[in-house]
């Protein structure tokens, strides 16, 4: 393709580098989630309430539209989003295993991971629970003129929660720098979206609240990214938006779920919509990377996550007294342990 614009070639090169970076991130997420599954099978995870985002890696198109300083909340299936915003996989796996070096010192786990430094205001295990927090973050950013955007990531299950619409209305009413991102993987636990909602045109719902709305095919990360850039440009200028990333949840709801509510045929069809495989095929087809280079990249991601899992598994569990810390701010007395109170009563 020829162009009269002399800047076009460097711009194209940068876009190509970014596409490769997005592929690398998606591959890292895939490898990470596979290690979470392995950690569970080895009995090293804290419990089985582990929700894998395999199949949803196209959300990297959205996280790549965020910049340093932007904040976000996620849901119970938020590992991929956090990793894409710069999380250390070893500390994530440590948290998932309830280890002391985990992001939350072994207090939160997979469903309540957060990191203030990276703008992660918290993963939430109440469907829709973290959504209104971005409205408040948007108020802070608007009032303090910081230029930051706050993003709520949630699943299609939350599209049926009332608090989402309260939050959408407020964001639109007050013109806040906020983005709502629905990762529509078709299932709320075992209920397919057409059994939960008569209308599945979610972008239109957002539009009804005065938000800019977009829907992107999550199997095509570049399409997601293009749509997200528009939504984020608007949000940064005080025009809040909504973006739906369609996907298929490759695995069951959590680790104990064998998906008896859907057929093997449906799963096979859904897994053909694989954002990671698609991105790799495209990089090869467009000549941006060859198969050897991509194999090396895949192997690096796998090795990185192996090392992360080793580090997490070897990490120590938190000491028992830490259970009383962080109920309140450190300057206030910690709650009195029951045994100490009993001694006080019986020795009185």
């Amino acid at each position: 393709m020829t162009s009269p614009d002399p800047g076009a070639a460097p711009v194209a090169a940068a876009r190509n580098t970014a596409a490769l970076d997005r592929y690398r991130m998606m591959r890292r997420i895939r490898s990470f989630e596979e290690r979470v599954g392995e950690m569970f099978l080895r009995g090293e995870s804290a419990g089985s309430m582990l929700h894998l985002s395999i199949g949803e890696e196209g959300v990297v198109g959205v996280t790549d539209a965020m910049v340093e300083g932007d904040s976000f909340t996620t849901h119970h299936r938020g590992h991929g989003v956090f990793l894409a915003r710069g999380a250390d996989p070893a500390r994530m796996l440590a948290e998932i295993g309830g280890r002391e070096i985990g992001y939350c010192r072994g207090k939160g786990g997979s469903m309540h991971i957060a990191d203030r430094e990276l703008g992660h205001l918290g993963a939430n295990a109440i469907v829709g629970g973290g959504i209104p927090h971005v409205v408040g973050a948007g108020l802070s950013y608007r009032n303090h003129g910081t230029g930051q955007v706050s993003v709520a990531f949630f699943g299609d299950g939350a599209m049926q929660q009332g608090v989402l619409y309260e939050a959408m209305n407020m964001a639109a009413l007050w013109r806040l720098p906020v983005v709502f991102c629905c990762i529509n993987n078709q299932y709320g636990m075992g209920t397919r979206i057409d059994r939960a909602s008569a209308s599945v045109d979610f972008a239109a719902r957002a539009g009804a609240f005065g938000l800019a709305g977009a829907s992107a095919d999550g199997a095509d990360v570049e399409a997601v990214h293009a749509a997200a850039q528009d939504i984020f440009a608007g949000a940064r200028a005080g025009r809040p938006g909504f973006i739906e990333v369609s996907a298929y949840r490759f695995h069951g709801h959590a680790r104990m779920d064998k998906s008896p509510y859907r057929t093997a045929e449906e799963e096979a069809e859904g897994r053909r919509r694989d954002p990671v495989a698609n991105a790799r095929a495209r990089l090869e087809a467009e000549g941006l990377a060859d198969a050897d280079a991509l194999d090396r990249l895949d192997a690096e991601a796998a090795a990185e996550m192996d090392r992360a899992l080793d580090a997490a598994v070897q990490a120590t569990m938190p000491p028992l007294p830490s259970m009383f810390e962080d109920v309140y701010a450190p300057e206030t007395p910690t709650p009195e342990p029951l045994r100490r109170r009993l001694a006080r009563i019986l020795n009185a």
């Binding site: 904040s71 909340t73 205001l121 918290g122 629970g129 959504i131 209104p132 927090h133 971005v134 409205v135 408040g136 973050a137 948007g138 108020l139 802070s140 950013y141 608007r142 009032n143 303090h144 706050s150 009332g162 608090v163 309260e166 939050a167 209305n169 407020m170 009413l173 007050w174």
Partner: peptide, 28 residues
Amino acid sequence: PERVIDAPISEPAIVGAAVGAAMTGSRP
């Protein structure tokens, strides 16, 4: 009006917005 904010009748999001504002440097 930036500091005294009349909210719609949406109590969960009023409190939820306060939570998010408190997490990001405001004291709501």
